[in-house]
């Protein structure tokens, strides 16, 4: 198990990551989702032990990354945003260097290299200079490097960027397959990818966690308020009163006239939307209104994502207020110095 506790990173006065805490369970794929500049790569660099943290703790299978870096790093396979490849090396040469670096036992090196090359389908490229490979292949070589030595914990920073759709599907399948033996944390800003691969998702923005949950739960928690679109033919007032009176309808958001006595209603629902929809339909029909169209907006990960990202953050905790203060004091002293 990997525990991330209160992880914080300041770049000067700028706080890139703010008190992030979560755990990654064994045999789990955790999606790390956020817009560009949300702090995804910074967090991953800290977990991998490349960047030192300003505050907090990362424990990888019981070893603290700052106190026992060598022991902790033995369990990590890391694919950074830019694949860390040497342009002057051949693919096989590079992988054998990495195997040595990761202290794969001498006898196993050859078979390990063959294994990862087979897994990522780069066997045809083993004699080529990395400099001459396309971006997609470089990415795969970088990925192969992360898998060398079969580390228990894999950190993949946007592993599918720069790949063609075919390769994306392949890489996703590989990641899904990795679940059997590894824990994976995997960042992306492509939502469909995360929902296709991950067990749980962390959504972060501006260095703060907005949500940690399974995709189903996230979607479900946002189904409480759903939007129903209904297009009826008949009198506007009558239709409005029937729809407004139905149980579970909280608000009529808008009414548009489409001409010829056809009106489109947009309605917010609360509760079991299927039942409410049926009620509205039967009421309308019994009052002689004909329904031309009816559908509900199904919230998907995308709308959840957008809502979570844009939701304002409340600063209620004392800790948050305390965190704010050093910033302020530093700013004021800086201003004074300027004067």
């Amino acid at each position: 198990m990997i525990t991330i506790d209160n992880l914080t990173k300041y770049y000067g006065n700028n706080r890139a990551v703010n008190h992030i805490s979560f755990t990654i369970n064994d045999n789990e794929i955790l999606g790390f989702l956020g817009p560009n500049g949300a702090g995804k790569s910074t967090t991953m660099n800290m977990i991998a032990g490349y960047l030192p943290m300003s505050d907090g703790k990362v424990t990888i299978y019981g070893s603290d990354i700052t106190k026992e870096p060598v022991k902790a790093k033995k369990n990590i396979g890391y694919l950074p945003e830019i694949p860390p490849v040497y342009p002057d090396m051949k693919v096989k040469e590079y992988l054998s260097f990495c195997a040595g670096l990761k202290q794969v036992p001498m006898g196993k090196r050859k078979s390990e290299i063959e294994r990862v090359m087979g897994l990522l389908k780069i066997k045809d490229m083993e004699g080529r200079l990395i400099r001459n490979l396309s971006k997609g292949y470089k990415q795969r070589v970088g990925f192969a490097q992360a898998l060398l030595g079969n580390p228990k914990f894999l950190i993949l920073d946007e592993p599918t960027v720069g790949l063609d759709p075919n390769q994306v599907a392949e890489v996703r399948a590989i990641i899904k397959d990795l679940k059997k033996e590894h824990s994976v944390i995997f960042s992306s800003h492509i939502l469909s990818e995360v929902s296709a691969v991950c067990d749980r998702v962390i959504i972060i923005n501006k260095g703060e966690i907005r949500a940690i949950d399974t995709i189903e739960n996230l979607e479900k928690s946002f189904t409480a308020s759903r939007v129903l679109h209904i297009k009826v033919k008949g009198e506007q007032d009558k239709a409005a009163s029937i729809i407004g009176m139905t149980d579970g309808v909280t608000n009529i958001n808008s009414v548009d006239s489409d001409g010829d006595g056809v009106y489109s209603f947009t309605v917010t629902l609360e509760g079991d939307s299927d039942k409410i929809r049926d009620n509205i339909m039967s009421e309308c029909i019994s009052h002689g209104l004909s329904i031309l169209e009816i559908y509900t907006d199904k919230p998907n990960l995308e709308s959840v994502f957008i809502e979570l990202i844009n939701r304002p953050v409340k600063k209620s905790g004392l800790q948050e207020l305390l965190d704010e203060t050093p910033d302020e004091s530093q700013k004021t002293t800086a201003e004074k110095e300027e004067k």
């Binding site: 991998a48 490349y50 022991k71 890391y78 950074p80 670096l101």
Partner: peptide
Amino acid sequence: NGTEVLLMTSPV
């Protein structure tokens, strides 16, 4: 080359 990351995150 960005390979510093590789060295820094390896158990060396």
